[in-house]
């Protein structure tokens, strides 16, 4: 979620501080800033002043409560032998960490762990650099009109659903697809890349590149625009050619963003495309396509073993939370703003 060079982040912070300082009456968060006023009177005054804001926020708060807090707390069924028909959440017996112990011994869950980590690592190497390269390419297009056109085209697939992306890949690379069709016309065997379990990791990575590399380049393009053009000029005067300038000016300028996005990927490591895997699971088999969310769906929801599936979901949620906190801590220690400040 977060990007921007150090300078940008700091600038945003400074701007907010200025804003806060300019309106002491409305923006003081801490009651301690007005030590003379009794706390309750202060609160009442603020409530009288701010109730329209609360009314405005109310629908959002209701939705967040109903569809975030309630299911989050509902995760207690991971500790239960949950049975929706006899007792539900209040009446089902509590069995402690049995579900979690069972998870660790489940080979299918092992597949989910291995696949998730493997695909994340693979995409870090083979997906992550693509938006950077694309941003450099886009940035080097001189004509603004051509640039806008190319940008428009490469951002577009981000707005296609995974169903569409998989359908399009199927039409190009599947058993009845274009590639197989052309091969057959030239007297070769047709191929069906969509069902090859050995090359599945390549397939999902190229789908991710096709769908999101263009969109991902926006952040790097913005970072490129903040690089001082005088640096390029100075480097050119000193005799640096195109490639030297890219190496000594452009890449150092992108470094903060690259570091930050790499860290953020760590926080997002468990969220490899759920829909993408769901859609192709039956084509390549579950051994290579099982990830955490598909496991929760097939081993929990489909079988009616709700407590077990919830345990898998909770495991993923908690590990993901820890990863985000760690990533954020690393970001802060590198002087970046991270996912959240404070």
């Amino acid at each position: 979620m977060t990007t921007g060079s150090k300078a940008r982040g700091a600038g945003g912070r400074a701007a907010r501080d200025r804003r806060d300082g300019a309106r002491p009456d409305l923006t003081r968060a801490e009651p301690s800033s007005a030590p003379s006023a009794p706390r309750s009177a202060d609160r009442r005054a603020r409530l009288r002043r701010d109730w329209p804001l609360l009314v405005m926020a109310a629908p959002m708060v209701v939705l967040v409560t109903a569809f975030w807090w309630v299911p989050t707390l509902g995760n207690v069924i991971a500790l239960q032998d949950y049975n929706p028909y006899s007792g539900g959440i209040l009446g089902s017996p509590i069995i402690g960490f049995t579900n979690f112990a069972q998870l660790l011994g489940d080979p299918q869950f092992g597949h989910a762990v291995v696949n998730t980590l493997g695909i994340t690592a693979f995409q870090l190497v083979f997906y992550f650099p693509v938006p950077i390269a694309l941003a450099l390419l886009l940035n080097s297009i001189m004509s603004p009109r051509l640039r806008a056109f190319v940008q428009g085209v490469v951002y577009l697939p981000h707005f296609f659903s995974w169903v569409l992306v998989v359908a399009i890949f199927q039409q190009m690379l599947g058993g009845a697809g274009l590639l197989a069709q052309i091969l057959r016309e030239h007297g070769h065997e047709g191929v069906d890349i969509m069902t090859h379990s050995e090359t599945f990791i390549l397939l999902v990575t190229s789908q991710t590149v096709w769908k999101d590399a263009g969109w991902g380049s926006i952040v790097f393009l913005a970072a490129l625009s903040t690089i001082d053009p005088h640096l390029y000029e100075a480097a050119a005067v000193d005799g640096a050619g195109r490639w030297r300038r890219m190496w000594h000016v452009t890449l150092p300028g992108l470094r903060p963003v690259i570091v930050l996005l790499l860290i953020l990927r760590l926080g997002d490591a468990l969220n490899v495309g759920f829909e993408q895997f769901m859609l192709q699971r039956s084509a390549v088999g579950s051994a290579v396509s099982e990830v955490f969310d598909t496991f929760a769906y097939y081993s929990g929801l489909r079988t009616g073993d709700f407590g077990y599936g919830a345990a898998a979901g909770l495991f993923k949620g908690l590990v993901g939370l820890i990863l985000i906190l760690v990533a954020n801590r690393v970001a802060h220690s590198l002087g970046e703003r991270g996912v959240y400040s404070k």
Binding site: W68, N75, F306, G320
Partner: peptide
């Protein structure tokens, strides 16, 4: 209130509790 919105970034309640809800 802001905090409870930001929490949605870091934790997804999970498929099954949401389904049951």
């Amino acid at each position: 209130l802001l905090f409870s919105v930001l929490l949605m970034f870091v934790f997804f309640p999970g498929l099954i509790p949401t389904y049951l809800l």
